[in-house]
Design a protein around this nucleic acid. Sequence first.
DNA 1: CATGGATCGTTCGGTACCAAAAGATCTCGC
DNA 2: GCGAGATCTTTTGGTACCGAACGATCCATG
Lengths: 183, 183
Amino acid sequence: MDTYGWYPEDNENLTDNEGSMDGEDFLAAERDIRKRLGDRELDFDSLHAISNIYRAATAVRRRAEREVLAQHNLSWGGFTILWVLWVWGQMDTARLASECGLAKGTLTGMLTTLERRHLVEREQVKTDRRKVTVALTSDGLTLIEDLFPRFNAYEVAMSEGLSLTEKRELARLLRIVTSNAVP
Amino acid sequence: MDTYGWYPEDNENLTDNEGSMDGEDFLAAERDIRKRLGDRELDFDSLHAISNIYRAATAVRRRAEREVLAQHNLSWGGFTILWVLWVWGQMDTARLASECGLAKGTLTGMLTTLERRHLVEREQVKTDRRKVTVALTSDGLTLIEDLFPRFNAYEVAMSEGLSLTEKRELARLLRIVTSNAVP
DNA sequence: CATGGATCGTTCGGTACCAAAAGATCTCGC
DNA sequence: GCGAGATCTTTTGGTACCGAACGATCCATG
């Protein structure tokens, strides 16, 4: 069996990761990865940069849904839709899907859900009847205006420990990754 | 109507965002947000830092599923499970769920899918029959060893434009956010 | 022993989410 | 005008994914 077939039989000499993780444990986990796979031709810096994005996104999303959004029966996606319509005003579904990072087929179902709750409304475009524009209702406006400041407070809490410079640097680096990933 | 009730009626004087977005457009979009909501007491730096995490994660995930994982019929979650088992070896389902960032109920279903494809196998722990450990099969090992180098190449492509220092800085900042979000 | 509480994995009900196909409408060459 | 192709949204079929409820197993205390 060549080096590529190497496989860990036990966890000796590796960091114990039982229980909940803090920042130290994450670093330790990344060291373990390097110890396991260090003899291969891999780019570990890209690996950690990219995989930490998803890890952070999942953690932030799940906690937001539990602690901020659940009391209003909103999913992350539903909240995003309201937020985008609030900031940019009404728009057609193709643009809305792109802004929200959703497939347009996904958007259809979620709009139906939001429409049933009278938070948004659809309207067929007169000049091009293939298109549909979506807008907040007054209920939707009330909800997002009440909810968003609390959501922003949550975002502040999630970026605790980052300086102003670091927040801006984080946003900048993520913009670069995003434009790499959007074909 | 007070300032809080202000609502955009049209998109004049705002950046046109039709079509696909690049890094410039993202910055423009963030400027629009500030223009729309700038008179409120919100922390825009936290907002952009946090919301860009999710945007980047979604874009990276979707493209990976399409361009790297689809040819092996793997979802992002399924891939993550194989990867974690590869790096750390067999473990019980609770730890596996935590490492993968999945709810344990979700993991059950995905393990069943992977087990049906003979990529992983479950085994009841002798000393504590409540527990179940999960391990890669040899098919699973072959798959991840073939797939991971290509996945890593994808990660390199996604971090194009970032220097080594920036990749490490990105990983570091995201670790801070993640530990804020894991309660 | 016995039994109540803690700790596992799984099941359940429901939404989110995607890619691909279908259906509706517009546009442009002829 | 009129039919072919382009461009929209919705529908479809299937997986991922969550929280909560459930059932099995372990363990501490009397």
